[in-house]
Write a protein that binds this DNA or RNA. Structure first.
Lengths: 308, 308
DNA sequence: GTTCCGCATGAATCGATAG
DNA sequence: ACTATCGATTCATGCGGAA
């Protein structure tokens, strides 16, 4: 445990079982795949597992009442492979069942604490564009939980990496810039908007809060990613350094791997659905081709957590 | 239960024990005071009880580990006095203790369900002005829970009363228009943009979500209420009709009573701290003097839940 | 009258110090 | 070792006075 700083570089990647899967998206049950991953080797786990669902489907068909039992053995594996100073971010939200919010998420928190996890924080994801709909006894759900678990009270956290422009007009100006605008302004090294952003970093940046304001990525042509890349990106910047290893055991459409590649981190993705692994592998490959420029740009700025 | 509509008017107020305290803020322990309130007589309970605290103080000195035990007998009283179709809104948030979020809130949810409550929904209060500070392992807390409990699956809910103008959405639409579009629109008819926005606000109303964006009234020198009036106001409009009865058993600076008066509902406030009851009684008196005009104005509009 | 600047004010949390 | 107290840190908001 005294060699944390050295471990956090890619020396860990040379370990046998891990090297086999490093920077890959593997098809399989994460419980099986993780058996081949050495203990204390992962810097960050960030994932959005299949939510509990009433009806049986090929993917994500866990009944709410069975969810805790289904999840706990996997959480044990996560505990084993996570570095002592690493972090586990779990995106989850209980559905309404029988007119009530189901209790499996809060039961899961209690059970994970009994198994050694620390429930360090609960971030709130405000989903700015939520699913439409109307019910007589309920409004649309517009938020999800981002549970932070750790193995010990001292964990790696790089708060400066996610500082955001100070509140008010500055934030709105930035939020309204499109990605292409950002690229254009950065590239024209001169008196563009990007340069002024750099000035603000020195003076007018504040630490964020535990509320994240992000829109879901709506209808991306290929895949319907409910887990927007900005979400893993934020936590990867916060809890890892370049060269560290990020694990997503339910990687779905690959957002976590995309974010890891963009930020120069290693990734290990797992999914039990073969189509998803193939899809996300293609998506990550595309990212890797355009990443050299992105890696530098994104690491300098891109530090907002949405609006407010 | 078949006379819900009649009961929801002030006929209930004629019952003996209730009439004694109606439209008053009473000094005492809510467990004692509520013994004098008949069962099934309250339409809405909305409250922000003292949060658990490490240190002992005169007000709010409950230790986190003792909180569930302290709260449950009170919750039993709330259950008794609440009408079958009534709602209980509980504003609460767990502090960080020993590097972790304490679990007493989620334990309380589980215990209240065992005692017959339905955990219908969890609204999220995004506190736009959160307490400052910086710590090595944690960001500032920027949200609190608003737990909704009910006695039965069918409860009174008047969704139209809290519909909000599309405001933010309209603004974003405008912001995303190209510059040339803006110029063209501004040049047109002089008055231009602002007027169009106003038209949209008047016309397009949408149902809110389960995320509320409100700032605390901390900077208010008269009464520094961490529970802003807008919060009880929103739930009173959503879950009661004019003439209904609202209970706040930990009324503090009186925000719930102020909102009830503004909206033409009866209130019953309780607080164990005598200074608070006197303060909030004065505050409510002031509200009652200016309310006749307010009641009409507020009931027509004032329906936003913050930014969005 | 507007706009702008300064200032007080928080449901906070951690780590150190003291009993 | 365990518990109570204290200092340091930090930012959105609304008020009041000034330009």
């Amino acid at each position: 445990m005294g060699m944390i700083r050295e471990d956090s570089r890619s020396t860990q990647a040379s370990q046998r079982g891990l090297r086999r899967h490093l920077d890959e998206i593997v098809h399989g049950d994460c419980e099986d795949v993780l058996k081949e991953v050495p203990e204390d080797s992962i810097d960050l786990i960030v994932t959005s597992p299949p939510y509990a669902d009433q009806r049986k489907k090929s993917y994500g068909g866990i009944r709410p009442d069975d969810y805790v039992e289904w999840f706990l053995p996997k959480a044990d594996h996560f505990f084993r492979v996570l570095k002592p100073e690493g972090t586990f971010i779990l995106n989850i939200k209980e559905p309404a069942v029988n007119g009530e919010r189901h209790t499996y998420v809060i039961e899961l928190i209690l059970e994970m604490r009994r198994r050694g996890w620390l429930w360090t924080e609960e971030f709130m994801w405000h989903k700015k564009n939520s699913y439409p709909g109307k019910w007589p006894n309920r409004f649309r759900n517009n938020w999800e939980r981002l549970l932070q678990f750790n193995k010990q009270k001292q964990f790696k956290m790089l708060q400066e990496a996610v500082m955001a422009p100070v509140g008010g007009w500055a934030k709105n100006r930035l939020a309204n810039l499109s990605d292409t605008d950002k690229v254009r302004d950065e590239s024209r090294a001169g008196s563009g908007f990007g340069k002024r952003v750099a000035n603000w970093i020195d003076r007018e940046m504040v630490y964020p809060t535990n509320v994240l304001h992000l829109a879901t990525e709506s209808s991306n042509k290929q895949h319907s990613a409910v887990f927007p890349v900005a979400l893993p990106r934020w936590f990867i910047k916060l809890f890892t350094e370049p060269g560290d290893i990020v694990l997503d055991p339910f990687i779905g459409s690959g957002s976590t791997a995309v974010a890891a590649v963009e930020l120069g981190r290693h990734y290990l993705g797992i999914d039990i659905n073969r189509e998803f692994t193939e899809l996300s592998n293609r998506r990550v490959k595309k990212t890797q081709m355009r990443v050299p420029s992105l890696a530098e740009r994104r690491s300098t700025y891109y530090g907002d957590n949405g609006c407010q």
